[in-house]
């Protein structure tokens, strides 16, 4: 019975995705899809000339690392320096508020707030600092991905704060703080050498998975990003939705490689977590 249930589970969660990945691989070597002409490695060889893919990959990595890094720093600072504040009204409820927002709504809100004709720009006009939307600096759909990073940080740092706060209590860091202070360590030394390493080590799997989620984000870069450079999900989707069917094999190849790459990262993370469970 157990075997039947597990087979059904494997079929449900892995059946279609694996079949889809094999199909994508078939496209990429010319044996699948409407333009299948027989086995070829031409699309794999063309990969090295796909500069837009490399730019997209680099941009996605930059956004993921910057946003997770910034959110992590804010959350650590709040948990380590404002522990009592986080336990007082309104914080226990306030930190949950951003979790109510779908990423698409956060993107829409930031679009209305930060665009050239957005709310902040209107206030700046009212103050007499600018006159037209064009005078306002590009904070969204900009080359540096500031809008995307802002959205990801706004969504991530409350979650990380709640995560670190829970881990802080679980690890009895208040007791460790007293102990290290008794032994002569300063507040900063305790934060840097004791608390932060413990929190980061315990939260590592969640942080890696979150970074992967940001790397593959679609909603936010679709609204707040621009056509070049694009984040990976938007880049691949745009590639597969073009009218030119000749673009399909390369689109599927990139999707296949990205999935395999992320699977390796997740596999190593879960193995690491299983071996170093704290």
């Amino acid at each position: 019975m157990n075997r039947v249930i597990l087979s059904f589970y494997a079929l449900l969660i892995a059946g279609l995705p694996l079949a889809g990945l094999i199909n994508a691989l078939g496209y990429s070597v010319g044996i699948g899809g409407p333009l299948a002409t027989g086995f070829t490695t031409q699309y794999w060889q063309q990969l090295s000339t796909e500069t837009s893919l490399l730019v997209s990959l680099a941009f996605s990595l930059y956004v993921a690392i910057s946003s997770v890094g910034l959110a992590l720093l804010i959350a650590l600072a709040l948990v380590l320096n404002r522990q009592r504040m986080l336990r007082r009204w309104p914080f226990p409820a306030l930190l949950y508020v951003p979790l109510l927002f779908p990423s698409l709504v956060v993107a829409f809100y930031l679009f209305q707030l930060l665009s050239g004709s957005g709310w902040i720009s209107r206030m700046v006009v009212a103050l007499g600092l600018t006159q037209t939307p064009a005078d306002f600096p590009n904070l969204i759909q900009d080359g540096a991905g500031l809008g995307i990073i802002s959205a990801q940080v706004v969504m991530a740092f409350p979650l990380f704060t709640l995560l670190f706060d829970g881990l802080y209590t679980d690890a009895r860091l208040d007791e460790l703080r007293s102990l290290t202070r008794t032994l002569g360590a300063s507040e900063g030394q305790f934060n840097r050498k004791v608390a932060a390493p413990i929190l980061l080590r315990r939260a590592a799997p969640t942080l890696v998975l979150y970074a992967i989620a940001v790397l593959g984000a679609y909603d936010v870069p679709l609204l707040l990003g621009r056509n070049y450079p694009q984040m990976l999900s938007v880049f691949i989707t745009a590639r597969l939705q073009r009218f030119d069917l000749a673009d399909l094999p390369m689109g599927y190849l990139i999707g296949f490689l990205l999935t395999v790459g992320l699977m390796i990262v997740i596999y190593r993370t879960t193995r690491w977590t299983q071996r170093h469970a704290l």
Binding site: A14, L16, P17, S233, T237, L258, T259, I266
Partner: peptide, 26 residues
Amino acid sequence: PDRWVTLSYLPYALPPVLLAIVIQPF
């Protein structure tokens, strides 16, 4: 059980939109 746990993480390797792209032909 660890092998099944690892398998359960498979859909998380695919961003939702990429999962949709991959399964769309089926």
